[in-house]
Write a protein that binds this DNA or RNA. Structure first.
Lengths: 133, 133
DNA sequence: GTATTATGAATGAAGG
DNA sequence: CCTTCATTCATAATAC
């Protein structure tokens, strides 16, 4: 569907088919590895893939991003509101009543999307986080 | 359609942010599972088990997190399922309809406790939270 | 380039 | 169930 932008100034939602293919392969590889590990859990043998994953609690995306450098899809893992969106957020926040209802969230999202890409969840999270901090 | 451009337009977009998120979660989960299984093979004595260890109630990833020395893990205030428990949760969730009855909760808790400390309430909460999110 | 801070996001738990 | 709050984790932004 339309995402409300006429200016193409964001690139966070772009994924090429090459990148999708990498993801597919990674998932397939993990599936195979897990299957093998579950089946032969007691038959310890060295895994060929330890470089591909980062079990030390770190990045989800590292192994994806760590692919060939021709990808322009920079590290836009996390949404950041534009300054205009922030102003709107703040003014709505001022007028009241905590975290808006889902219907209201949707409306706010629609308004914000005039000023940059945004999803319902982003709006929800913003209000959830705004109050305590 | 041409889609060879690397100039910053999104003409090659074939995947939405939501879809990317799903893939990302899949990969993350596999990474955790693999990490857990690998640890289990080589460091089986360090796995959190039900034998009364881990009084803070969280198996968490302690066995796979090569914990940064500066981070204090000792007090974990909220329960976190181990990856093995998560697998069990998910498979039960797949076959089931909604939140289980108290008796069933108890059974599930017993099974899960083979893989880390857990209480009835944790199981209940997990099923309560699983659907909306 | 590395360390720190601010804040987006995920999720366990409580309340209605 | 659904909504709300608290805690924690991850990371973009910033300071060093």
């Amino acid at each position: 569907m339309e995402r409300g932008s006429q200016n193409g100034e964001y690139d966070g939602r772009v994924m090429t088919e090459e990148q999708m293919e990498i993801l597919r392969k990674q998932i397939a590889m993990y599936a195979v590895i897990c299957g093998q590990l579950v089946s032969h859990e007691s038959l310890s043998s060295k895994l060929p893939v330890s470089s591909g994953m980062n079990p030390t609690g770190g990045g989800y995306f590292d192994s994806i991003v760590a692919s060939p450098s021709t990808y322009k899809i920079s590290h836009r893992h996390r949404w950041t509101p534009t300054s205009m969106q922030l102003q709107i957020f703040e003014s709505i926040y001022e007028e009241g009543s905590g975290t808006p209802k889902p219907q209201r969230i949707k409306e706010i999202m629609m308004e914000l999307s005039q000023h940059g890409q945004v999803m319902d969840k982003n709006v929800y999270n913003w209000f959830q986080n705004r109050r305590p901090r």
